[in-house]
Nucleic acid binder design. Structure first.
Lengths: 260, 260
DNA sequence: AGGTATTTGTTCGTATGTATT
DNA sequence: GAATACATACGAACAAATACC
């Protein structure tokens, strides 16, 4: 049993004006407790009724919190059984789980970006098609190598395109782990609310192979990500090349409900 | 205004025992109406209050239905504004949107599988690692070419592995569009509830190039999918090879809420 | 600028249905 | 069958954001 089951006074949750929703706060608490090992994988969480009493919130609030955790893949719920903690799905090495925006942005934040160059380009031809911009448009292009802090070989080569009005966010510290999109968010007071990702395969040509220190002809994932704000307007586009041996993207899909 | 605002009798929805949840039925109705063009992109859906009155259900039911549509990317909601229909995100050709299990399974169902061979293999070495099976295990392997009904060139080459106890589902009609996993579901009375997908890149060797009628050395996506049932036990594994020129996987991620 | 109405978001309470033990 | 636990559904109220006058 946990040490602090009876000792801790059930802290009644309450929303202080203008803050997070209650269910979101509760989800954070439970999520933290799961990660801290208070609730072990394959064991059950306290029942919804118990949680409502322990935190002094309604059942709906509890259920919304649990739904958030379920959407994140942390738990599964079964009628008559309860809510069980799932095994954390994490393979180390070149595997990387991307199931949500949070995963994606966290991945971006956990890697170092080594700047190579910044320049302005007139988008045209195949590039215009790839990043879905009107040909002839001027965009600011920054190129980086993405590295995991421990490793020496780069994980990927990244080209970041932002519209000229955001060019100021394309600063160039030699090494950075604050993503460009975050600079844009702060400097221009907007929030990325959606990311679209196109995945295809390619073969490393001499130029890519050289900067990536990988063999010419190795297969690589080519991932194009479009960042949009709440108004569906494009914030930035990134084109990344991940050599096969250094990155595998893993995603998990759950069925929501039965079909008719 | 819509022509049939007052003319149509509001069909009061009710759940007939043991069926779909009400909100799911309502989601299906609204989804169909959106696809039929009753509600056009960028226009607003009726307000939640209106929908509760029109269908004789509670606001909670309406909100749950709208949440399903929001999760599917069909609509967006804004306080003070309403719920607007989103532009359908569909690029034809080799682009394919995979944002949910439904998308994934639908994609599987919308393509023809042309059977090539069935055999039993002792899983070992790199294959065992790839499909995450204990080496030495006997599995039933079926190979297919996936084709879109219109096209002549295959979209991908697929190897499907199922445990021996499910081998009976690996039947071999020359052409089939009922996926193997559905055979297993019916024959063994279980439901696939989760799919994990690993994506990496590879280069077509001579063997793959020949069956795919693609040039040797072309880049290809190598997608491995693990199908699990509700008990987290493995149902089947598929390994697919999609030549770069014939398939691009597209996914969309939305931010759920603000971080603390 | 200010106030009111509208619309979605959050939270409570309660009751009933369904699946499991 | 009874108890437990999650799922669905109704009603009500207030808050926050936006639009309109």
């Amino acid at each position: 049993m946990a040490i602090n089951t009876a000792a801790v006074v059930p802290e009644r949750l309450a929303r202080s004006a203008g803050q997070q929703p209650l269910y979101s706060t509760l989800a954070d608490i439970l999520s933290r407790e799961i990660h801290e090992g208070k609730y072990l994988p394959a064991s059950t969480l306290p029942s919804e009724k118990e949680l409502t009493e322990r935190y002094g919130v309604s059942r709906q609030t509890v259920r919304f919190a649990l739904r958030m955790l379920r959407d994140k893949g942390l738990i599964s719920s079964y009628p008559g059984i309860g809510t069980i903690v799932r095994e954390p799905m994490q393979k180390q090495g070149r595997f990387n789980a991307v199931n949500s925006t949070e995963d994606l942005l966290q991945f971006v934040g956990n890697t170092e970006m080594h700047a190579l160059a910044i320049r302005e380009v007139v988008v045209d031809g195949p590039l215009a098609e790839q990043i879905e911009c009107k040909p002839g448009l001027l965009m600011s292009e920054a190129t980086f190598l993405r590295k995991t802090p421990g490793s020496d070989l780069p994980m990927s080569y990244v080209r970041i395109y932002v519209p000229p009005r955001f060019a100021a966010a394309q600063v160039k510290p030699a090494v950075s782990n604050s993503p460009v999109y975050q600079n844009i968010e702060k400097m221009f007071n907007l929030r990325v609310s959606e990311i679209r990702q196109d995945v295809t395969a390619t073969v490393l040509d001499e130029e890519l192979a050289e900067v990536l220190q990988a063999p010419v002809g190795e297969a690589a994932l080519q991932i194009t990500r479009f960042y949009y704000d709440a108004n569906q307007s494009l914030v930035q586009v990134t084109v990344s090349y991940y050599p096969r041996s250094r990155y595998t993207q893993s995603a998990r899909f759950r069925v929501a409900d039965d079909e008719a």
